[in-house]
Design a protein around this nucleic acid. Structure first.
Lengths: 232, 232
DNA sequence: CGCGAGCTTGACGTTGTTCAACTAGAGTGG
DNA sequence: CCACTCTAGTTGAACAACGTCAAGCTCGCG
């Protein structure tokens, strides 16, 4: 990991997966945004943003993983996604009601930079390229949300569990074998089902030789069959 | 309904609920967008945009209702929302893959204006106000999608049916009594359940005196109890 | 009058949740 | 080093929720 071209371990300029949103910025604009950042570190379990509170900063992830979820009044959560290095957490409160609509919680030690929304707003108003890029980001997120909606409402348990495993493989750990930093409840919240049902379905897949699972170690053995289950 | 300040029955300038997106435009910009519009009329059942096809135009609704839904490979659909006068249909393909991700189908006779995406893009690049407004729109849509996701995955049937009825009351027909222009299957697709289950749940509410339902005529009698069911 | 599409109802089976008991491993204090 | 406790994970059985299938109904239309 390279050092920040100014000082510190900034995620805006030297994170391995630097957010594309900043690509179109002029050097002056970039410097200003950069100088205003705050580098913060969170421990596992700590809340980074809390649903319902005022939206004052965005986060730019450098290191570690966090889960982003929607808290329902009755206690059950919907885990919307897992995010890591390079993720720009800009929420849905921007230009609407200025509150956080989701809770972001650290799963591991998380290092990130915070950027005040007012700095961000100012940049957006003066920089078309960045606004366009943001619209593009928003649209991709909406596409994801829409397919998630379709999958969670119409697939059976096996399909939903398979989707979760494929999501972890493809988007988070980027390997066939990985060590979870999510609890079983988190996994169930990703698949919109009860913890017990998730465990049972996982066991069936293990018994069928599709996976190897020991506590938090997961290894995907038969990717084809997993994809088949996902496709229903 | 007033006439277009130029010619025709344009939904961009003289629709009762003119989209806020155009508020910040200069007169010149507005005139150019306006002169490039195409006024089109659709009959009930006609497809306005088809999921998977190239995204070349946006639609600006003047009159009538349409349903917007996600088509699943297996045949079941998810009805994302019902739209009417003043709705700007700009899809999620913009600045991403340039395809339609949802199908839009006329429920009644629909009159709208089509605007080529390239004209729209050009405006967005030269007009910050409009870009900001679009980001705001996108965020509101994402908030809606997120709560929909939570409601459809965790509420029981009574709650989901109540949600659909409240949605129709509050956002579409804006009255306690209305005549549906949706089939039972459409309503079930809104609530993410089978047609039979929707009908059964509707009957229970009728038997409980919460609603009056005769074919396509719906009257909400006990709003409080309906809201109670929605809250679970 | 008969036909057909959409609506309605009932019976039945499947799927998934809930509840409760049990287990494994990690941390703590004697 | 061994109990003890605590938390997360696992398993089973009972139950409720929901979908599916099949049959009958209603209304508009030829």
């Amino acid at each position: 990991m390279k050092e920040c071209k100014y000082i510190g371990l900034c995620s805006i300029c030297c994170c391995e997966n630097k957010p594309s949103l900043f690509n179109g910025l002029s050097e002056d604009d970039f410097d200003e945004l950069h100088s205003e950042r705050k580098e913060i570190s969170f421990k596992p379990g700590e809340i980074i943003f809390k649903q319902g509170t005022a939206l004052t900063h965005f986060a730019c992830f450098r290191e570690g993983f966090a889960k982003i979820y929607y808290e329902r009044p009755e206690g059950s959560n919907i885990l919307v996604n897992i995010v890591g290095s390079g993720y720009l957490c800009e929420s849905m409160g921007m230009f609407t009601d200025n509150i956080h609509h989701l809770t972001t919680q650290a799963l591991t030690t998380v290092k990130l930079c915070l950027i005040a929304t007012k700095n961000f707003d100012a940049l957006l108003r003066s920089n078309q390229e960045m606004a366009i890029e943001l619209i593009s980001m928003k649209n991709k997120q909406s596409i994801n949300l829409t397919t998630k909606l379709a999958n969670l409402t119409y697939k059976n348990m096996a399909g939903r569990v398979a989707d979760v495993l494929l999501y972890l493989r493809n988007d988070i750990y980027k390997a066939d074998e990985f060590v979870l930093n999510l609890s079983r409840q988190d996994l169930a919240d990703l698949a919109a089902m009860s913890k017990e049902s998730f465990i049972r379905t996982l066991k069936e897949m293990r018994d069928a030789g599709i996976l190897e699972v020991h506590r938090d170690d997961v290894k995907i053995i038969k990717l084809r069959e997993l994809k088949q289950l996902s496709a229903n």
